[in-house]
């Protein structure tokens, strides 16, 4: 009974992962793709790991269950941070929003950040300013 439930959870997790991958292909720009990649893949992978944890606990295989739970918590905490870092990095290095985007409130702040980085000599933004 518990095993069947765990296999169902793993299966649903796989479906969410699949949606994440389809989103990665179909959505138009880095930022939208990162959305699909973080949301669907985080939940999908966490569900797979929780299913595995359930299987482990059901067989009294404690190390397997505990490791799977710890991995799920790690993914839940680190995946959004990684998506944030990727999007911020992409924006600051000059990746444009998709032309169908309706608003861009980050432009001013990004310009300030870039100026500051250039002043400090951390990066040169010459290559991104030429079209």
């Amino acid at each position: 009974m518990l095993e069947t439930a765990c296999y169902w959870v793993i299966g649903i997790g796989l479906v969410f992962d699949l949606f994440g991958c389809i989103g990665l292909i179909r959505l138009p720009d880095v930022y939208n793709r990162a959305q699909a990649a973080t949301k669907c893949v985080t939940l999908g992978t966490c569900m797979i790991l929780l299913g595995v944890a359930g299987l482990g606990f059901g067989r009294a295989d404690w190390p397997m269950g505990v490791k799977a739970v710890i991995c799920a918590v790690f993914i839940l905490l680190t995946n959004p941070v990684a998506a944030h870092a990727i999007c911020r990095g992409a924006y600051l290095s000059g990746v444009k929003l998709w032309e169908g985007s309706v608003e861009d409130a980050f432009a001013d702040r990004a310009r300030d950040l870039r100026d500051r980085q250039t002043e400090e000599g951390l990066v040169s933004h010459e290559e991104t300013e030429t079209p």
């Binding site: 969410f16 949606f19 389809i22 989103g23 179909r26 959505l27 138009p28 720009d29 930022y31 939208n32 959305q35 699909a36 949301k39 669907c40 939940l43 999908g44 929003l97 998709w98 169908g100 985007s101 309706v102 608003e103 861009d104 409130a105 980050f106």
Partner: peptide
């Protein structure tokens, strides 16, 4: 959130209206 993104992704027109807000 997942169901919402999944629906947008498999919808034939990909109905999105993206942007960055503050």
């Amino acid at each position: 959130a997942n169901l919402d993104v999944a629906l947008r992704v498999i919808h034939p027109d990909v109905p999105i209206r993206p942007g960055i807000v503050k």
